[in-house]
């Protein structure tokens, strides 16, 4: 199994069918997402090379309005480069990015995108309030400053100087700069880095409030739990290519949602590979480990063949294992086993 495809199913976990969430939320969406089902963002065959390194390699994807999408991948997968190109900070070597029907530069300059970058810095020597006020003033569709401070959870230290904040506080100020205007798309690059668990939870609470207003959200992360909990849709990228695209449940299923292990004398790998639902199999002497998308069918297949394995264990796989399985498969297919 070397190919996971790029399924295009987009079922939302909240069951909404209009792409905007529930009907109640829909009332609040008039300001945002007026483009129907036209993609907010689309990447068409986008590549970026630095010398001989292909950071992004023929990326194709669409973001639909109102959707929360996680861009998931290991370090160096091309997440930041993709976001940089989306935000017009870097130019693609080839391919085309469209945002709100225009090019990224004009979309950014018209205030339709609010972004929080890992590499984004803050102006020192001013207070948090002064900085938020400045960036709000620069936004074509500003939100009230006090509202932004409150939403980002930084109103308590609004009069402290920016250069005297902790790492987690700094992250929240950056977040404030991303939401200080009525931007339709919010882009966050590893937003909860340097936040403790409690701050992280508060962060996602306020983020969900932003999304409930109908904004489209794209965030890059390597916290799988975060992608699982916050995103409607996950894009798994590795080596600059899109490996999987679907709901968290679909991503887990693609990698084989369950693992079956047992002991079996003279296990025949060829036979095991033919079992229903099977995604991956590993045989070490008499120990067999199977990843499957349908553990019942796989196990019945073993029993129906008259085999009687011992010490059977069936475990559900989290997104983390799914993610590792998908990227490891990709690395194997490329003949370069991950060394770290």
């Amino acid at each position: 199994m070397s190919h996971y495809g790029t399924g295009s199913s987009t079922a939302r976990r909240d069951g909404g069918t209009n792409g905007y969430g529930t009907d109640r939320d829909y009332q609040n969406t008039a300001v945002y997402a007026s483009t129907g089902s036209t993609p907010v963002v689309s990447f068409v065959n986008v590549s970026k090379t630095y010398g001989s390194l292909k950071a992004v390699d023929g990326l194709n994807l669409d973001l639909r309005p109102g959707e929360t999408t996680a861009l998931l991948g290991p370090n160096g997968a091309g997440k930041s480069t993709s976001l940089d190109m989306l935000l017009a900070l870097r130019k693609p070597t080839s391919g085309k990015i469209t945002m709100f029907g225009s090019d990224p530069y004009h979309a950014v300059k018209s205030g339709r995108v609010g972004a929080m970058l890992q590499s984004g810095g803050l102006m020192p020597e001013v207070t948090v309030r002064e900085l938020v006020t400045l960036v709000t003033t620069l936004h074509p569709k500003p939100e009230p400053i006090d509202l932004t401070l409150k939403r980002a959870g930084i109103d308590k230290f609004a009069d402290q100087r920016v250069d005297r904040l902790s790492g987690g506080q700094t992250q929240r100020v950056r977040f404030a700069l991303a939401i200080c205007g009525k931007s339709e798309l919010i882009v966050l690059d590893e937003p909860t880095t340097a936040m403790d668990v409690e701050t992280r939870r508060l962060f996602w609470d306020s983020m969900k409030a932003e999304v409930a207003e109908g904004r489209t959200l794209l965030f890059a992360t390597h916290y799988l739990e975060e992608a699982d909990q916050a995103a409607d849709r996950i894009l798994v990228i590795n080596r600059g290519r899109l490996l999987a695209d679907g709901t968290p449940a679909e991503i887990k299923a693609k990698a084989g949602a369950r693992r079956i292990t047992f002991h079996l004398d003279r296990a025949d790998e060829q036979f095991l590979l033919g079992l229903p639902g099977l995604v991956n199999v590993e045989v070490r002497r008499d120990f067999v480990q199977i990843q499957t998308s349908d553990s019942d069918a796989t196990l019945y297949g073993v029993l129906d063949a008259g085999l009687r394995p011992r010490d059977i264990e069936v475990t559900g796989l989290g997104l983390e294992q799914a993610f590792i399985a998908i990227t490891a498969e990709d690395d194997r297919a490329n003949g370069t086993e991950e060394t770290n």
Binding site: V108, L117, G120
Partner: peptide
Amino acid sequence: KEGWIRQLRLTSL
């Protein structure tokens, strides 16, 4: 170096 110039590029300036 700290990325403030980068941050400003994300505004409509």
